[in-house]
Design a binder for these strands. Structure first.
Lengths: 195, 195
DNA sequence: GTCTATATTCCGATAGAC
DNA sequence: GTCTATCGGAATATAGAC
């Protein structure tokens, strides 16, 4: 995979990020060396420092980008009925998680390896995403379409349940994505008392 | 914390395991050095090798022990009504998870750092625990006490939801353990169609 | 069982040539 | 922008004294 010298900034940058994301998710941030990332890209270790000031910034960048992408991909429809909004959230969260397994895994696995500043930034974004689900639940409870004891606790419980799909789902397995999402939506609907 | 020389095998062994568990959970297996573990215990790094052949075995030992403890702590009552068994499982799983946060976190965070043999051993134990929940769900569905589309998927979903409590619960927070367990049981009951 | 000392390897990051 | 080469330090693990 080694190449002779040459300038390919436009493609090398994303390749570095892709390789780092994959390796960090697979082996853990601390277990992956800059040399391994470089080898996966096909350059020497020193070349990576043209794209990131250091290893820590590389991680922080991956995590904040993931959270921002997640937030901008989720489009709530505040005018729709709460149950419809909730179903959309469930299906969106599952699909997005399965489409970005590495980033999802990394972003609740390596938060502890972020500097305080970077951690705070990611936590804020995550809080905003969680709050968007809480708002749906509150609206549902207020409208009488859902019956739930604690919107905040329910938010945490549901997100953990939905994200957990990445731990066991395998493409080509017994259930396809549609079937999985249908089943999870059934569970969620029951959990919020809208069964 | 450094001590002068002396023989304290009986207490040092557990101290090494405790320190390793805490540090691995906090910072990640790869990020923790044998020197750090030794410093936490109050010995020099070389002394650790009287208790473990290497770092990898230390991790494997912690994870298999955790799974074995979990399995032997859980006592199902197969004769009781399914809903009662399910409630007992929910309360047990939450309580046990909150009592062993570090081990729980570690055991689904550092599986990837196990050798294939050690991984297979842990996966088998985990599978047995999961199966004990699946059995309850099947019994509930057969008895008509629960309404669920897929016992296996429901097992994975519920365990992820319940384990997730370790991500946000804080002692002395807005809700105490009892209230948390009550709310989760309400969510589970709804999810399995027994609301 | 624990210490000190060390062999060996690898790490992140930088310097300077091209 | 990428290379080669290297600095300074820290890692796991071992050897031998006590």
């Amino acid at each position: 995979m080694a190449r002779t010298t040459g300038s390919r900034a436009e493609i090398t940058g994303p390749l570095v990020r892709d390789a780092a994301l994959r390796l960090f998710a697979r082996h853990g941030y601390a277990a992956v060396s800059m040399r391994q990332i470089a080898a996966a890209v096909g350059v020497q270790a020193g070349a990576l420092y043209a794209y990131t000031p250091d290893k820590q910034a590389l991680l922080a960048n991956l995590l904040t980008d993931h959270m921002e992408n997640l937030l901008s991909a989720w489009n709530d429809g505040p005018a729709a009925p709460p149950l419809q909004r909730l179903e959309a959230f469930v299906r969106f969260h599952i699909a997005y998680s399965l489409d970005h397994t590495d980033a999802v895994f990394l972003s609740y696995m390596e938060l502890r390896n972020l500097s305080p500043d970077n951690f705070a930034a990611v936590a804020t974004l995550r809080g905003r995403y969680e709050e968007s689900l809480t708002a749906i639940l509150r609206a549902g409870a207020d409208a009488g379409a859902m019956r739930l004891a604690d919107p905040r606790l329910t938010t945490m419980a549901l997100i953990a349940m939905l994200t957990g799909v990445t731990n066991w789902y395998r493409e080509g397995g017994r259930l396809d994505r549609r079937a999985v999402a249908d089943h999870y939506w059934g569970l969620v609907r029951g959990a919020v008392g809208a069964g």
